[in-house]
Simulated scan of single mutants.
Amino acid sequence: MPIFILLFLIVPFVEIYLLIQVGQVIGALPTIGLCVLTAVLGGALLRQQGVRTMARARHNLDQGQLPAHEMLEGIALGIGGALLVTPGFATDAVGFMCLLPFTRRWLVSHVLRRVTVVSAMGAGAYDSTTRRPQGREADGSHIIEGEYERKD
């Protein structure tokens, strides 16, 4: 909890400092224009990358694979979009890192290496190397052993 309080105190001061420094170099109106431009570019990039990520998630679901990468990429896209709408240059840098495909995939892979994703599609965890739930066969089939009794 203290880290969030620290972030809420430090980030605005860093942003104000950077805005003042850039404003002194290029002027107030170009600085404001640059902030608006990054927000507009971020919105367009968010829309494009969001559609691509949703298409990949849908494809993985159709193949019977858990779209864990795509779900985390969607979270990163949301965070990146929020940071780009926030005025400032430091938040824009982090926001673009979340929106650009190569840096976003690196961040998501880094997170997936550190966590275990439990699959609701069956027992076991998500295997990040094969991008499917552990215990699932290569052809997508899943064998469930059990007994049943038919009552008419």
Rank of each mutant, 00 (worst) to 15 (best):
Gly124Met: 08
Glu73Tyr: 02
Arg47Ile: 13
Phe96Val: 10
Ala28Cys: 09
Ala82Leu: 14
Leu41Glu: 05
Leu112Thr: 13
Arg150Glu: 04
Val85His: 01
Gln21Trp: 03
Val11Cys: 03
Leu84Gln: 04
Gly50Leu: 03
Ile3Val: 10
Met121Val: 06
Leu7Ile: 14
Pro67Glu: 02
Leu107Met: 14
Phe8Ile: 08
Arg132Phe: 03
Pro101Arg: 08
Val14Ala: 12
Thr31Cys: 01
Ala76Thr: 09
Gly42Ala: 10
Ile3Tyr: 11
Ala82Lys: 02
Val115Asp: 11
Ala28Glu: 08
Gln48Thr: 15
Pro30Leu: 03
Ala120Leu: 15
Gly23Leu: 08
Thr103Glu: 03
Thr38Asn: 04
Arg113His: 10
Val117Leu: 06
Tyr148His: 09
Glu137Thr: 14
Ala57His: 11
His142Cys: 12
Gly33His: 02
Arg56Glu: 03
Leu37Ser: 05
Phe96His: 03
Val85Thr: 06
Leu19Cys: 09
Leu72Asp: 00
Ala39Thr: 14
Thr103Pro: 03
Asn60Lys: 10
Val40Glu: 03
Gln134Ser: 06
Ala57Leu: 08
Arg104Ile: 05
Gln48Glu: 15
Ile143Phe: 13
Asp92Pro: 02
Arg113Lys: 11
Ile79Trp: 00
Thr129Phe: 05
Val118Pro: 08
Gly42Met: 01
Ile26His: 06
Gly124Glu: 07
Pro30Gln: 06
Gln65Met: 08
Phe102Gln: 14
Ala44Arg: 15
Ala68Glu: 04
Lys151Phe: 15
Thr129Tyr: 02
Asp92Cys: 09
Met97Pro: 00
Pro30Arg: 06
Gly95Arg: 00
Ile16Ser: 13
Val85Met: 05
Arg105Pro: 09
Arg136Gln: 11
Arg58Tyr: 00
Leu99Ile: 07
Glu149Asn: 10
Thr129Ser: 07
Gly81Cys: 05
Gly74Cys: 09
His69Glu: 15
Val108Trp: 00
Val11Gly: 02
